[in-house]
Simulated assay, not measured.
Amino acid sequence: MNRSRRLLPLLCACAAPCPAVGGQAVMEGVMMRNGDVYGLAVRQPDGGILARRLPWFSLTRRPWLRMPFVRGFPILLETLVNGIRALNRSVEMADGGNGDASVLSPWHAALSLGLALLMAVGLFVVAPHLMSLAMLALGLGGDVEGLTFHLWDGFYKCCIFVGYIWLISLVPEIRRVFQYHGAEHKTIHAFESGSVVEPERVRRMSRLHPRCGTTFLLFVICISIILQALLVPLLLAFWTPQGAVAKHALSIGFKLLLVIPISALAYELIRYAARLPDGPRASLLRAPGLALQRLTAHEPDERQMEVAVVALAEALGRDADAEIRTPPYARL
């Protein structure tokens, strides 16, 4: 009975509908998603705000793809596709264009997504594996069948992840994107509080949000460390190819396949952590992600918060239940 009571909040969080509003920072602007549409608002060189409302590309229209512990991976892919498209449109809009001149074609979007995934695989799967092999060569760790190999692998994953975020935060353009990221979080907090959403109220909100993509990626890394340490040695115990190169190639390939269940688990975990009432358990689950967000969500200025409020208004449309008070802006 006690075990059932402990599992009930997790099952309720998994079965609950997806959050109504989410967002992403783009170049000189913010994208806000609301169901099947998203709003994109960008600060132009002349100081004005240009916004538009666009359809959301979805991979989860079939009911079974929206089921708990299934939806995580397709949602990750569709978020990447829509994020790349929104980023491309924001560059055009920030340059004073109409947002259509260089919108990615389906093939270009697929290529961009493929390159992004290839870079992620290289940084967070192949590179840590090779570094762990270096520890084996130095006599500081075991082979891939042992626990120490995967401890080194997890250590390097975390170092590369945090180091990558810190390095890109040194780029002035990325620092501004991180400020818009903070503006996005503040605006969503204001909306979720159920009161009037306006820049003055948005300013008082936290720039950290438990349902952030940064937290999701951290959960992905932590879950991957645990599952890979358990399942890769188990696989090799059943069958080990001849030769060291084949063995490590199999290990890397298996890690790539594990991305699907890992992303599914991470998605449900971040939803569970975000829905927990404030308390010790919620603080324990949220603390690492919120701490990491201090690197990726910077404090925005007034003008950036105005852009985020406009993006929210465009995403919600005219039938929004909340009162959204925006500064003057132009629509495409």
Rank of each mutant, 00 (worst) to 15 (best):
T187K: 11
L115N: 02
G83H: 03
V91F: 13
H248Q: 15
A109W: 04
G317P: 02
L235G: 08
C18E: 13
L40K: 00
H129D: 12
C159F: 14
G279L: 06
R303A: 15
E145N: 11
F161P: 01
I75G: 03
L284S: 03
L285N: 02
M1W: 04
R52K: 12
G35L: 12
A116W: 11
V310M: 09
L87Y: 09
F73D: 02
L111P: 03
L7E: 05
T148Q: 11
L285V: 10
G99W: 00
E92N: 10
G72A: 06
V42Y: 03
L332Y: 10
D153W: 13
G83C: 07
L133P: 02
R303V: 11
L50W: 07
Y38C: 10
R85C: 12
E198N: 14
L235S: 06
N34Y: 09
R52P: 01
A311R: 03
F191Q: 08
P261F: 06
R271A: 12
L59Y: 05
S132Y: 01
E78V: 06
M205G: 04
H185V: 08
I252S: 13
L290R: 01
I174T: 13
D319R: 11
V220W: 00
S132P: 00
D153I: 03
A183L: 09
Y38N: 08
I188P: 02
L136H: 14
R331Y: 04
G243E: 10
A291C: 12
F219E: 00
V220H: 00
L76M: 14
A287S: 15
N88H: 08
M119I: 13
R176C: 04
T296W: 08
A237W: 13
E192A: 10
G22W: 02
V37Y: 14
E299M: 08
L269K: 02
L265V: 09
G139V: 07
S132M: 01
G139A: 09
A101I: 05
S283N: 13
P288D: 09
R52Y: 01
F57H: 14
L80G: 09
V126E: 10
L151I: 13
K186G: 04
Y156N: 02
S206C: 12
A297I: 09
F219T: 00
S105P: 01
F73Q: 04
G39V: 04
I49H: 00
E268P: 03
M119W: 10
E92M: 14
G97F: 07
Q304N: 09
N88M: 08
M1P: 03
M32D: 06
V70K: 05
V21R: 01
